[in-house]
Amino acid sequence: MLVGLLINGLVSGALYALVAVGFTLVIGVLDKLNFAHPEVLMIGGFVAVVASGLPPYYAFIAAFATGGLLGLVVEFAAFRRFTDADAKITAGLASMAVGLVLTDLTQKVFGTESVSLPIGGGWLSRRFQIAGVEFLNVQIVIVLATAILTGGLHVLLQRTRVGRQIRAVAESPVSASLLGVNVLRVSQAVFFVSSALAAEAGLLLALRSGAASSDIGLTFGLKALAIMAIGGLGDLRGAMLGGLVIGVLEAFMFHLGLGRLSELTVWLAMIVTLMVRPRGLFSSGTHGLEQRA
């Protein structure tokens, strides 16, 4: 049963990873912390509610588009006017305000309680067994979606023209601009992609738990923030690995009879990791470079 428990932890970790990757993309490229990111995740869950009854791939497309568009809104409302290095805190606060507005609007429409998804007998809710533990097909989808989306992101960054521009902006927005890169467009692309990933994660989380909740952004999003720090700010590999490790550790806490502390796992792991490796597990991201300099 322990093996099954740990595999289950890996699946949970895949979702953490997906959210943390989106967080880390913005900070890695633009050196900005987007506090509205968790609320885009939350809205992804409600896309699952709205799209329930439709084939799941419609929901995936809708979540990607909704998340991406919200990313553009966040970029415009909270970051566009705060481009100076000194305005990072203002931009962070502005993004927090946008996040709070999104939460409030969602609560106005869907209420403050969790909204259940219809219990369906479809393919996603079929079960299979590994090591004595039951898994749902939706958990396979979570792992596959995380792999495809993060793999796709890797290809986008490494193999495409847009990716080269994004990397150039990450290196130095000023130099990139002098070389003819449209920094605004790159910034918008980064927000679109990172928020689309968050919304997909929210959709998957809602499908997994059977409900969407307007509170999820805070709890899940903060965790993703800590995972990003564990992995190394701005490092996609770190966010991925950090998410998986935390998922497994949380599962293991229940095995040890310490389930009440499972929510603390991520914070304890962050403290320990940063004490041992102040730049996180990986340090190739923006902040790693800064600190090396």
Binding site: M1, L5, V133, A251, F254, R260, E263
Partner: peptide
């Protein structure tokens, strides 16, 4: 099997109980 109000995933708790 104890858990926290802030838990977003109780699958591990359920597996532990099942065992």
């Amino acid at each position: 099997v104890e858990f926290s109000s802030k838990s977003t995933d109780l699958s591990s708790a359920a597996i532990q109980i099942k065992s």
